[in-house]
Simulated scan of single mutants.
Amino acid sequence: MRETQAQTVQVSALSDDLAFLDIVTEWDVDSAYHEWKAGIVVPPTFLAGSLPRVIAICNQKGGAGKTTTALELAMALVARGLRVRIIDADPQEASMTVWLRYFYPEARAEADRKNLMHLYFDQTVTLQQITYATPFEGLYLVPSFPDLEDVETKHPAGTDTALQYHLAKADDGIDVTIIDCGPGLGPLTVSALVASHDVIIPVQAASGLDVRGAAALNRTIGSVQGRLNTELRVAAVVLTDFEKSSLARQIGGKLAKAYPNAVILPARTSVRIGEAQLAQQPLRTFAPSATTVLDYDRGASLLLGNGTAA
């Protein structure tokens, strides 16, 4: 795993004088609506994660903001000097691999360009071999393509624990691995949950269906906790496309009650996200003052205790 381009771009920290949300200890459901102002909920019981860390971004519903959450959290952590790997565990074509540019080593023949699918089917492939540099210093990507769906349909031996095994075996100096899961609760998502310390659940702030769908995800998380990963926890719920409304307030309250030990992070909406995707740039570099960027930046510092690389 080496830098393959002549020079990578360093991701800058954000200015402290931007319009960050306040940090509170509980979700406000009692004040008059005209006085209500959403904040980032950090319960007194919440403990920031230690390094190295593996984080799964999960919600079986499509369009919940998983890929945006994965990329913007990764960029915020890289800006703090951490080395971050994103694993694209979504076989859809409109996934992280399409959004985030990456670079194959120049000396590697096209036939030797492996991706996440090979990790499940080829016992000789290592995680380092499928981890590629991106244009950003300290940020790496494990890409995937539609043939990753074969893991779901053929379920090769050891699927549940494959990522866990390879992450434990890797010795590549990565501080945080973020797994961007697909819209399903099949073998790939289970594999991600088995490998992770934390789960982050993106939920559309204006979708009651997302809240109802969380019950199925909770059953899957509970099953993994009971059988294969007793240390797994829900660390945060991200309210994506957040705008102030009575529905968003109600959804935030329900989720804060459902996950009393998790950070509740409103990620304010931005029309620039789609533009950033078309430009194949993270929102953080495409529109660094967008409120969405600010919210993910603050969320990253809370989840890992304002940690920076040693």
Score class of each variant (00 low, 15 high):
137 E>D: 15
266 P>D: 06
286 F>Y: 15
186 G>L: 06
305 G>T: 12
22 D>V: 08
89 A>P: 04
211 V>N: 11
177 T>R: 01
278 L>P: 01
48 A>V: 11
299 G>S: 04
241 D>C: 14
242 F>M: 05
238 V>A: 08
5 Q>E: 08
82 L>G: 04
251 I>G: 04
213 G>L: 06
261 N>K: 13
54 V>H: 04
47 L>M: 13
147 D>P: 11
74 A>V: 09
269 T>A: 15
223 S>K: 09
33 Y>P: 12
230 T>H: 11
286 F>R: 12
144 S>M: 05
227 R>Y: 03
169 K>L: 14
214 A>D: 13
179 I>F: 06
196 S>D: 04
199 V>Y: 01
234 V>Q: 05
288 P>F: 01
164 Q>C: 05
20 F>P: 07
220 T>L: 03
105 P>F: 03
16 D>E: 10
149 E>L: 14
308 T>F: 00
285 T>D: 02
169 K>M: 13
161 T>E: 11
221 I>M: 06
188 L>C: 08
268 R>M: 02
13 A>C: 13
214 A>Y: 07
233 R>F: 00
185 L>P: 02
277 Q>P: 03
83 R>D: 12
4 T>Y: 05
301 S>H: 13
100 L>R: 05
140 Y>K: 08
198 D>L: 00
204 Q>G: 14
131 T>M: 03
275 E>I: 07
291 T>Y: 02
128 Q>W: 00
191 S>I: 06
201 I>F: 09
50 S>T: 13
140 Y>R: 10
190 V>R: 07
254 K>I: 12
96 M>A: 14
92 Q>M: 10
199 V>A: 04
149 E>R: 14
35 E>S: 10
75 M>P: 03
194 V>I: 14
8 T>V: 09
35 E>F: 03
40 I>D: 03
56 A>T: 11
107 A>H: 15
265 L>F: 03
303 L>V: 07
22 D>L: 08
31 S>A: 10
191 S>W: 02
241 D>K: 15
173 G>N: 14
185 L>F: 04
